[in-house]
Design a protein around this nucleic acid. Structure first.
Lengths: 335, 335
DNA sequence: GACCTGCATCGAAGCGCTTCGACGAACTGG
DNA sequence: CCAGTTCGTCGAAGCGCTTCGATGCAGGTC
């Protein structure tokens, strides 16, 4: 391995000069800088990460902590992870991926050991056991999702209350009066995941305001589960003409089942989904949907956490405004 | 931050003794060890990662390099990534996630800087530009997927030739004589991704041996694309009774379309998919499938790369044997 | 010409850990 | 009872970098 000292010798300068060329923290004459840079190129020098971390007490790594559970919608997590990794790189950081199975103690391990300079937590629950540990460490962190108590935390999330409201508005605007919500799996509610409950809040509040009847049913993904849920919905509310699908793995089964039952979309029933755009476009009907801006969430989380590393204190909650794209799965309510 | 020296002082021993307690590289009396361990607990000591890396020239990090492209099947990648991260943890390693957008140079950066001790590359192409860089570095690496030339590399992959063969065998055994393959997106073939071509090899070879007519059509995911492909297939080979689906995002559209056309599964046509078990079980028909053992691939990659780190030279290709699970989507060919 | 200023560079002191050689004490065998 | 081991521990060197004075030198000022 090529070291700083070798570069220095090769360029005929001292080690500290090379270091300053690299960091730009002191002015270096153009001539010297170019000579040093040439040596770096020629020798193929890459600074040793460990030595750097030790000397500067900065690792240039951010840790992304993912939940291990698989009942979350996987593509969204993946998209966030990739956005975090690539955005971090553009700021000179690498990304360490922590899976939830190590539990909250991973937070302590990673921050205490100086492995990561900052953390981003995904899938934050209302009462998340990682949060106290985060507070006790002095490292910056950003949460993707909202805990019950956000004081002292920087959070990034889609505004799920507005998302719920938006879905109801859209359908109500088209004249639908009986709306069913195909919710997340029951386990998601039991775990008190913020986004599921907040969506529900938005859905309910807006339906009340608009005088729409709303039926919410949690639902596992997959064909069987959706079939059962759908049957129950039409049993309880035969007049249902609008569906809002929150659990993305229920989307395609729902469309298939409706078709099978001879209910045309959007002539007989309208469907609005909350899912990434890609899913909405690949479905058998081009879905009217509120997109989950996974990439933007990952990007923002990184930008904020790096701002905090740079010393800008920003303990605030950033809620992204949801956007509904009207496509082929929703239309006027039948008379 | 608590340091080794503080622990040593607290326990009344020298720093090196604490280090040896931690590493176990020299024998330490029970009494001393317990005293040191108690101090570690009490002070909440975690060794500094940078200092460790510098002194031992080992970072205890493995890097996983993911392709950036999204035409690969996402859940599989995700599953591999999570398996790699968790398996690595059980061996005392953390996982750095590199996305493909940095290009091959990321390999050099990460190995030269000593950021990672080893690398795992996903989605290896037949002629992969990262491989030369890998060879020039002395760090161990494992490939998930097979390049054209595997000499000097350790590879882990599903045996896709056998996978293709297995699908054909299953359908041929049920009496099907005209089989259509819904392949990966055209871009996947153009890129010469090994697994797609090898699957095709297996499919073709076995069909030839068993005297089965095989029609292969690349196909994008999504409803529209599958509809077009399906129409062409029945146009060219009206007698087609068996389908092998390689592109997992074509599975559900295919089932929906067949249903729509009044073709019953498995009475009129049989469908075999190559996909993770979870997908096969969540589909509208419980799918006969050859599962993609993503988790096992991730696990094996880590185990092998750690073996190499420990000095065991193993430049070999490990092909996992595919397994077909017969479920509800395949049955005897109609007469 | 003496003085100050600012720029470019150097030397040296660590950062917190691992690891090697050394050393005393306790044990072994002849 | 002494040489030879083995065991448990310590001290010090050093990993490759950052960073803080210090220093030399050119240029400007009075």
């Amino acid at each position: 391995m090529v070291t700083l000292a070798e570069v220095a010798r090769h360029a005929g300068v001292s080690a500290s000069t090379v270091s300053y060329v690299l960091s730009g923290k002191r002015s270096i004459s153009l001539e010297t800088r170019e000579r040093v840079e040439a040596s770096i190129q020629e020798l193929g020098y890459h600074p040793n990460a460990g030595a750097r971390a030790l000397a500067s007490s900065k690792s240039n790594i951010v840790a992304l902590m993912m939940p291990l559970r698989s009942d979350m919608y996987v593509p969204v997590m993946m998209e966030i992870a990739i956005a975090v990794a690539t955005t971090a790189r553009t700021h000179g950081y690498d990304m360490l991926l922590l899976t939830g199975d190590e539990g909250a103690s991973a937070v302590r391990r990673v921050t205490r050991s100086g492995l990561a300079d900052a953390m981003i937590l995904m899938d934050v629950e209302l009462k998340d056991e990682r949060l106290p540990l985060l507070r006790e460490s002095d490292r910056p962190a950003v949460l993707i999702g909202l805990p019950a108590d956000t004081t002292g935390h920087t959070c990034v999330d889609l505004d799920f209350v507005a998302t719920g409201a938006l879905c109801v508005e859209h359908l109500a605007g088209l004249g639908h009066r009986d709306i069913a919500v195909i919710g997340e799996a029951p386990a998601v509610y039991e775990r008190h995941t913020g986004f599921a409950e907040r969506t529900l809040d938005g859905l309910r509040a807006r339906s009340r305001e608009l005088g729409v009847r709303l039926l919410h049913r949690p639902c596992e993904g997959g064909y069987q589960a959706v079939a059962a849920t759908l049957a129950r919905v039409f049993d309880e509310r035969p007049g249902t003409t609008g569906f809002i699908v929150q659990n993305e793995s229920a989307v395609e089964p729902l469309l298939g089942l409706l078709r099978q039952q001879g209910r045309a979309v959007p002539e007989d029933v309208s469907v609005v989904a909350i899912c990434p755009d890609q899913v909405a476009l690949q479905a058998s009907v081009r879905l009217t949907s509120v997109s989950i801006p996974a990439q933007e969430m990952g990007r923002q989380a990184v930008v904020r956490v790096i701002a905090k590393l740079a010393g800008q204190p920003e303990d605030e909650v950033a809620l992204l405004t949801p956007e509904l794209s009207a496509r082929a799965s929703s239309g006027p309510a039948p008379i």
